[in-house]
């Protein structure tokens, strides 16, 4: 008998994860009975599902209620995508808080200046992780997860097993040549790079381009560095115990040992945005704090 699967999307999603699931829909049909997935099937109720896949970060009271309902059903829950696992891009809201962000987006940046208040779910204070609300068996990170890794994940879900993730960094699988020694005296953000000046077969970090490879889990076969883009860190930290920003900071500061400190200060002004782009709510400090000035 096939297990009954429910795919639940929370409010902060962009649609990327669902698109990936759409690509592998035949595999889903083969392994499961899809009972609830607003994107693919027409049904309103997930209460008879045997297993859950949750997508997206927890942002509103409604999300909390949904997760509460899932928890009461006492069925295995899997998280799909970096948002569900680590908070993802919406997690950057935590630098301001959701209330402030809603006001900024709807009031200050629209012509009408109206903040929607009726029939919309109330935002939480900060973006939260699915794992803080329900017990998550295991997860697959990625923004979105790679299509060729998803069938393996779905099989683990069907069997009720843990999906085993590699504890290696993107650098470990990155084919670009590493000389192991860096003499760089500059920092380049990717928008400042002159493509003709860079040796695209050599490690980008060793040439001064900020790359999150050393702090990011290798579930992607280093697609970006091979295509002339530095790693942005979308797979989250290398292991559960690590803080992505702290390990990136450690590795990158060591490479920059010959770079002038003033330049570092200038270029790394948005340190949180660079180092925690995908994992802020799961980091050690989590969100902004109120301190005396």
């Amino acid at each position: 008998m096939k297990k009954k699967l429910a795919i639940v999307s929370l409010s902060g999603i962009c649609g990327g994860c669902e698109t990936v699931l759409g690509v592998v829909i035949e595999k889903i049909e083969e392994l499961f009975d899809l009972v609830y997935a607003p994107m693919f099937v027409d049904s309103q109720d997930f209460s008879d599902a045997d297993v859950f896949i949750v997508i997206g970060p927890v942002e509103t009271k409604e999300d909390v209620e949904i997760l509460e309902k899932i928890r009461k059903l006492n069925k295995p829950v899997y998280a799909f995508g970096t948002c569900a696992a680590y908070g993802g891009i919406p997690g950057l809201i935590n630098l301001y808080g959701l209330d402030e962000t809603v006001v900024e987006i709807y009031k200050n940046r629209t012509k009408s200046g109206l903040v929607p208040s009726r029939d919309v779910p109330k935002p939480l204070k900060f973006v939260d992780l699915v794992a803080n609300h329900v017990n998550v068996v295991s997860f697959i990170p990625g923004c979105p997860p790679l299509v060729d890794k998803v069938p393996e994940f779905l099989e683990a879900v069907a069997k009720g097993e843990k999906f085993v993730l590699p504890e290696k960094s993107v650098c470990d699988v990155c084919p670009l040549e590493k000389k192991g020694k860096s003499e760089i005296t500059r920092i380049l953000l990717i928008n400042e790079v002159d493509p003709n000046e860079i040796d695209w077969n050599r490690c980008l970090l060793e040439q001064g381009i900020l790359c999150m490879g050393p702090a990011t889990r290798a579930l992607c076969d280093a697609h970006c560095p091979q295509r002339r883009m530095p790693c942005f860190g979308c797979m989250g930290p290398i292991s559960e115990k690590m803080d992505q920003g702290a390990s990136a900071l450690k590795a990158i500061a060591s490479v920059l040992v010959n770079v002038d400190i003033e330049e570092i200060k200038k270029k790394l002004k948005d340190a949180v945005g660079l180092f925690y782009k995908f994992s802020l709510p799961s980091s050690i400090l989590k969100h902004k704090w109120e301190d005396t000035k």
Partner: peptide
Amino acid sequence: KILKRLLEQFG
């Protein structure tokens, strides 16, 4: 130096 900036952004 970078950590100080990080802490500042975290408030």
